[in-house]
Design a protein around this nucleic acid. Structure first.
Lengths: 214, 214
DNA sequence: TAGATTGTTAATCGATTAACAATC
DNA sequence: TAGATTGTTAATCGATTAACAATC
């Protein structure tokens, strides 16, 4: 049960969580793979297959307890932890994430933001301080930061990533739109390419008025 | 050559574009599937297979002309068009997209933004006017809007989407974090789930310090 | 117990990789 | 021409679906 969980499965887990939360909020207590599948638009087989990567959540003849399954998946994803995160770059996107993104709901916690603008440095955003980028390395080291969120201009992406990784960060959530060159072993990188997403939408929209989603 | 291009291929096309642009910016004129593959971290076979979904871009014994291949893929993605887009919801994320996102580089064009806040309505953001949401439907109809970008609170997502689709929008770029219930045939939906992305990063970061990306 | 639904194995399907003949 | 590299077919691999025995 601990051989190697496929990429596709991992990427589906957060979606399960969302739908289970939805069911829970409606007061639903149990769900069968068939019901969940029809809500989510996937097969019951796939659900059972996916869940078995982790362990026997269900009960034969009954189905799955919504709350229990939700917690099981959350545990598998490590949502109980509090990964310590910093935002690097307080442009509009960095600001949007700092102010509106629910880090806690993803098993994370924002602990600081960094920028170079003297108008921003020294103040705070939301509940966290805004520091100068020159303090990035020492801050990461001193505060055991786990994740760096890159929301700065593309040209500075590689530098910031290298600095963060050098100081001990283990994960990079990269919004700069450029695939990172940095590739330290033991560092996980999640590239968010918004333009890829819009281009994909454009493709489907034009071709036959076809659907797509995830 | 027009049977049905797989999802996986479509999702890879924007990435090809990015790397080809990079090569072009370095003055590289030709590239072989082997070279491109090693830069992008995928196999030469996959590249040749992918590209053949569209048409004979390459030249045997030579490779691919970077600019030509780039344009070929761009055409396949429909990047030449100018999809007309509106942003609905001018919170921090909507603002970030309105001000910083390069719609033109994705074959789109931002034509207006909508909000309910009287402090925002009537002004403009970047180069486009900010209108009241009550004008959304008529604006979409009158201006042949193709895409609605949803950056408003989750609770209003379904309503806004339904209104936009009813008025003629064909694509929805959804940042609300909730899978849309609206499912009109002929409407394409691209859900951007930032929290899924961070959760996935968290998973890989914790498990063995393993990599992942796309 | 009978009915339902899981866990899990087997079958199918699709996607990736390898191989190689065509050809520039 | 000889060398390189594509386009394309065949082989492999993995992921999804179907089936069914185990069991609640």
């Amino acid at each position: 049960m601990n051989y190697k969980i496929s990429n596709n499965v991992i990427k589906r887990l957060p979606r399960y969580i969302r739908y289970l939360d939805l069911l829970a909020s409606e007061g639903v207590q149990k769900v069968s793979s068939g019901e969940l599948g029809s809500i989510m638009g996937i097969t019951a087989s796939q659900i059972r297959q996916d869940l078995n990567c982790f362990g026997g959540f269900g009960q034969q003849g009954y189905g799955y307890n919504v709350a229990q399954l939700r917690d099981g998946i959350a545990a598998a994803l490590g949502m109980g932890d509090r990964l310590r995160a910093v935002i690097i770059g307080l442009g509009n996107l960095g600001k949007a994430l700092a102010l509106n993104f629910r880090f806690e709901e993803c098993g994370a916690e924002l602990v600081a933001a960094f920028d170079v603008d003297p108008d921003k440095v020294g103040k705070s955003i939301g509940a966290v301080p805004v520091l100068h980028v020159s303090e990035l390395e020492s801050f990461i080291r001193d505060n055991a930061v786990d994740v760096a969120v890159l929301t700065l201009p593309q040209s500075m992406a590689d530098g910031a990533a290298a600095c963060a990784v050098g100081a001990g960060v283990r994960g990079i959530w990269n919004f700069t739109g450029k695939d990172l060159g940095v590739e330290l072993p033991g560092t996980s990188i999640e590239n968010v390419h918004l333009s890829d997403s819009l281009l994909t939408l454009g493709y489907y929209l034009r071709s036959d008025g076809g659907k797509e989603t995830r």
